[in-house]
């Protein structure tokens, strides 16, 4: 074999070795990254946090939000915790978010992982309060309703409804959470008097369902009443055929 072709072969083999080491290392490394950054989110983020994946990408892990919080609510996840490494989160049962009107944690964020567009703390969606009705005192028939009283978005995020009790004539007064107003601050979870909180904050994504557009709630006031359901252009989902008459016309005129 000629010396030049031998040298070329050796060079190519060395290139291949280098590339395979880099590729193997890269694969292990990216596996670690996917494990960490794409894990199911369980940590409750500070107000204004972007969607979990965008937050994980944009957060530089500097902890300026942690330092800005006047209540020491936030902490940075250390290695080995359930929350992705170095990112801020809080545990509402220990210290909830007290919803400062000037939102200092968002103002302190240098990267925008906490969205600077958040100006009203009531628009924050840190998580969603979820009630375990099997362990909620009010749902057992006791008069508790502490969560309702401590809620900073009172009568909007948590309302107290009465509910007939099976064994006596007395009604039960039970708390209900409304996702359109709940900020996920966690003051309810902190205040809940049961041994383990019966109301707790979870990332909305983990608990919230979605009805889908093809179900029509015909009895609600803003749903138009129609007789014929025409499938939409995409097949499964559809929109009702536009009806020239209102429901009142339907009752008064031909239909019945």
């Amino acid at each position: 074999m000629r010396a030049s072709s031998k040298a070329r072969r050796e060079f190519l083999i060395r290139m291949g070795q280098g590339a395979s080491v880099a590729a193997t290392g890269g694969l292990i490394w990216s596996y670690l990254l996917m494990e960490q950054a794409h894990a199911t989110p369980t940590g409750i983020r500070p107000p204004g946090a972007l969607a979990e994946l965008d937050f994980n990408a944009s957060c530089i892990k500097c902890g300026q939000c942690v330092r800005a919080c006047p209540y020491d609510t936030l902490r940075l996840a250390a290695a080995g915790e359930a929350v992705s490494i170095g990112t801020p989160y809080f545990t509402p049962r220990d210290v909830p978010c007290y919803m400062c009107v000037d939102i200092p944690c968002v103002a302190a964020c240098p990267t925008g992982a906490l969205d600077h567009g958040l100006s009203d703390i009531n628009d924050a969606r840190m998580g969603l309060a979820v009630i375990d009705i099997e362990n909620c005192l009010s749902w057992q028939g006791l008069r508790c309703e502490i969560c309702h009283r401590v809620c900073p978005v009172q009568d909007k995020a948590i309302t107290v409804e009465h509910n007939p009790r099976k064994i006596s004539k007395h009604a039960m007064f039970v708390p209900l959470v409304h996702s359109d107003a709940c900020t996920g601050c966690g003051m309810c979870e902190e205040a809940c008097p049961t041994d383990e909180a019966a109301i707790r904050i979870l990332p909305a994504k983990l608990v919230q369902g979605k009805i889908g557009k093809h179900y029509r709630l015909g009895w609600t006031i803003d749903t138009p009443v129609t007789q014929d359901f025409v499938p939409g252009p995409d097949g499964a989902a559809g929109s009702p055929a536009p009806s020239p008459s209102t429901w009142l016309d339907y009752l008064n005129e031909d239909g019945l």
Binding site: W29, S30, L32, L33, M34, Q36, A37, L53, N56, A57, I60, K61, G63, V66, R75, L76, A77, A78, A79, G80, E81, S84, I85, G86
Partner: peptide, 25 residues
């Protein structure tokens, strides 16, 4: 991967962060 690759595994940041913000692993 869409996340800052070194920042998620850097022993430098881990050491520095945990000295300042509380120890972990």
């Amino acid at each position: 991967t869409g996340v800052a690759a070194f920042e998620w595994v850097s022993p430098i940041s881990m050491m520095h962060r945990e000295l300042l913000f509380g120890m972990g692993l």
